[in-house]
Each structure stands twice: as structure tokens, then as C-alpha cells.
Design a protein around this nucleic acid. Structure first.
Lengths: 241, 241
DNA sequence: AAAAATTAATGTACGATATACATTTATTAA
DNA sequence: TTAATAAATGTATATCGTACATTAATTTTT
């Protein structure tokens, strides 16, 4: 027999010693929506290294903490929000991505309702909302993360009802359309949009109107989570859009 | 001013000390295709811990190594193959996923041509191909990884020409259909399948026939990478299937 | 009180695509 | 020559995507 350890150093699953530490971090790409535009929450670093530079909001993953929990912790620390839509984007694992340390980062993107977050907390951390069309330079590979997140959002939003995550519970159809126009970066036809979103029977019309946007006013709607879940369970692999 | 470090422990991006090590690994979900069935390459552990148990093939990520490079290294060490389709699946980051150590794993799935790999190398590592419909129990969260990979493959294969990665360069339409039937886990209509795959003009018909599967023989085709890339560049967001 | 202004809401016709479905063809083996 | 086998092909229908213009409700202005 051959000596297993020597001939099969890496794939056998037994541990070898690493002389330096490997760090694991998570960075959050936090999206919001306001007056027709997608917004991104960025953070101006107030300590070295990279003081004064804009970056995403992140943290190291603690040794006894799930990676997803780390991202939830960061989000809550910055915005005060729990239980919002958040999902893994991608691992950023280039050996040289962070000069000086070896650190991989798990990018996670979140969609939040701009009305809900804790403004004091955000300001206290030096975090600021930026229009995604006018972003400053970001540290490290954070610009890549944002680009990837925008692309993933575009893809996912076609088959999962993500638009609703960016709006208040009560919203109007013109508002919803505006969200999707921001995500897909193109204008949509009003009539076709309505046809599509109504076709799934997951919107509940309310009696109330939103008069802030027009003289006539637009009816409020709510998204029916239960009915949506039933559709998914039935294996309905439908396009929300 | 407040003391930044105390009040903002985690989100400022500066380093705090971790008392124990965080390990980063990668596990490869390696798919092949043979006689109508999807196959998965599994590895019977020959050393403690978990000796004798089946697991995916993995490795720790080295300190000076990209995460993706680690997966490529594992794949080559096991199969002798380079430059095959491989893509990140998901991070497995539960704090307690590996008893004893804190280790996160980046799952990566690969699609390989069964004719190409180095059989001696595979056997030498104690790796064995299993039909995905008859898998043994796997260690840790590896069963979850396989399930996730199968689901992702199903999703991705609709919009990206992944089926070709599992076949030899020259293949017949019945073979190709068989691959997609294995991926989607359902039977497809011959006429509609042909209509669809030919509609994109990315298949090149050869003069040669494959007589192994029938008396009449089926013509060989090749996938035209260049023409496919042109379509993608034109922004053609088409369903391969 | 009437008119103007503004955004919300609605329907239809046409083209493209998905789906369901049965027969003929090429070749080998008997 | 016949039988057997899998490969190859076309059409009709339903569904869905897309393009496109007018009317309705309400407030503000005159």
C-alpha cells in the first residue's frame, strides 16, 4: 500500500496545518427603493485602514456564528431591521483581494423597505443611501459585489416576487411598476404590466387610495403571501414578470 | 465623539482577534452522464475521522490560493481534468456543520465528460461513480449540497447550454435529449426537443453517424461555442430549452 | 361652475412561441 | 425479402408576449 497522507495531501479531508489565519467575512449589499430609483446603503470608513473611503457594510464571521447569522447581525446593527429578504450572492475568495490579510468574504444582498429602517442608527454608523446610478468608488472588490448583486437581482426578480420587498405593505400598481423598471433598467408598458401582475392572483385590492402621486389617486394593493406560496407548492414555475 | 471601536464592534471593518481558527474548505459536486443517468463522483474515506463513510471530494483552501483555484485543484487531483465547467453553488456556513472544527465550505459543482477522466487516478483515490438516484448516505451536510446542486443544475440548464458539458464533443440528438431528460427528471417530446435545439443555430451537423445505439444510426453533431457566444453578446436571453 | 390639467385605469389585435400528437425512413439482422 | 429497431420529420391549436390609444377620476385654475 501507498502512504495515503503523502500521496493524497489535499483531497482526503484530513487537516493540515495552516501557518497563518484565514479570515471569513460577510459584506452586505443593501438595496432600498425611493422615488423611482434603486438605492444602496454605503458606509464611509472612519478608521484605518482605508479611512475616508466608501465601502459596503460588513463584518467578520464569529467563530460560533453561522455565516448567514453574521449577515443578519450586520444588517440589524446598521438598520435595526430583522427578518428582511436577504440571500447569498457569491463568495469573493481571491487570495489577494484584501491586501495584508487573507480574508474571503461572503457577499449577501438584502432588500429593505426604506420607511422601516432606523435612521438614527444608520447615521450613527456613517452610512448613507446612494442612488445605484451614481455610486462612488468603493474599496477592495466591493464594486464587483455591487455589480454582481444588481445582475442577480435582475435575474431573480423575473421568477420570484422580489419587487414587493422594496415597497411598503400597501402599494399602488404604478409604484410596483416603477420598482420593476428600476430593477430591469427599462420602461415597461402599463397595460401589459398590469395584465401580468394581476394574472397570478396574488394581489389584494384595498378600498383605500394613495392620493400622493396624482389627483385621481391610485388604489392600494397588498401582496398575498399565502396565495403565492400555494402557487409555488403546486410547482408553478411562473414568471412574476 | 464616541469611541468607535466599542460602540461599533463589528461593522467598521477593523479586525478583532479570533481565539481559534476558522477553516475554509471547498467541496466538489462532480456530475457525469452515462447510459441515460446522471452520475456523481463520491469518495469513500479511508482515514479518520469518519473512516469508511461516503463523502464529496473536498479540500481546505490554502492561504495563498483562490477559492476557485482550490476547487480546480481538487478536481484535477481526483480526475486529471482541467478546464471543465465548474461553478460556485453556495456557501455552507453553519457554525456546527463540522463537529470539532469551525469550518465553512464553498460548494462547487462541476460537469465532466465521463470518457475523459483519468480512471486510474479516480480509483487510486477510492472515488466511485454513483447514480444520482441511488446515492448512499453522505457525511456532514454533503447530502444537502448534492440536493442543492441538482436543483441548481435543473434551473441553470434551462438558460445555459450545460447539457453539452456532459457529452463528448461529438454527440447525437437522442443522446442530448437523454441528458436533458436526466437533468429535468422528465421525458421530453422528440419533435419539440429537436425544434427547440435547432432553433438557435448552435449545432453543427457532421457527416458521421453513431451506429452504437440503433441500426439506422444517428448523426453526430457538435456544439458551436462561437455562435453561442455571439448570441449571448447580442443580449439574447434565450432558453436553451 | 366650468375648464384644464394630471395621472390611473382599461382592451384588442397580431405575431411568436409552446404543446400535443403519428408516420415515414434508414439500416441491420433474420 | 421481411422483420425489427430507433431516427427523423410536420402540422394544427392553444397560450403567451407585445404593441398600441383612449377614457376615467379627481384636483386646481379660471
Amino acid at each position: 500500500m501507498y502512504k495515503e497522507k503523502e500521496e493524497l495531501p489535499a483531497v482526503t479531508g484530513d487537516f493540515y496545518e495552516q501557518s497563518e489565519k484565514m479570515y471569513v467575512a460577510t459584506d452586505c449589499i443593501i438595496f432600498g427603493f425611493d422615488s423611482g430609483n434603486l438605492k444602496l446603503l454605503l458606509f464611509k470608513r472612519r478608521v484605518a485602514p482605508l479611512e475616508g473611503e466608501w465601502s459596503l457594510i460588513g463584518s467578520f464571521v464569529k467563530l460560533d456564528e453561522d455565516v448567514s447569522a453574521a449577515a443578519e447581525r450586520v444588517l440589524e446593527e446598521i438598520t435595526g431591521l430583522k427578518n428582511v429578504f436577504m440571500e447569498e450572492l457569491k463568495v469573493y475568495g481571491a487570495a489577494n483581494r484584501d491586501p495584508g490579510y487573507r480574508c474571503i468574504s461572503v457577499g449577501q444582498y438584502a432588500l429593505i423597505r426604506l420607511k422601516d429602517y432606523d435612521k438614527e442608527l444608520v447615521e450613527h454608523h456613517g452610512a448613507v443611501w446612494h442612488d445605484v446610478k451614481e455610486l462612488p468608488s468603493l474599496v477592495l472588490d466591493h464594486e464587483q459585489m455591487v455589480e454582481d448583486a444588481l445582475e442577480k437581482l435582475k435575474q431573480k426578480a423575473r421568477y420570484q416576487p422580489l419587487g414587493f420587498e422594496l415597497l411598503p405593505e400597501k402599494f399602488t400598481i404604478p409604484q410596483l411598476q416603477s420598482v420593476y423598471e428600476a430593477i430591469f433598467q427599462k420602461e415597461l408598458d402599463t397595460r401589459n404590466f398590469r395584465k401580468k401582475v394581476f394574472s397570478h392572483n396574488v394581489l389584494v385590492k384595498l378600498d383605500e387610495k394613495d392620493k400622493s402621486g396624482s389627483k385621481r389617486g391610485a388604489f392600494f394593493y397588498m401582496f398575498d403571501q399565502k396565495r403565492y406560496k400555494k402557487l409555488v407548492e403546486k410547482g408553478n414555475d411562473f414568471e412574476v414578470f
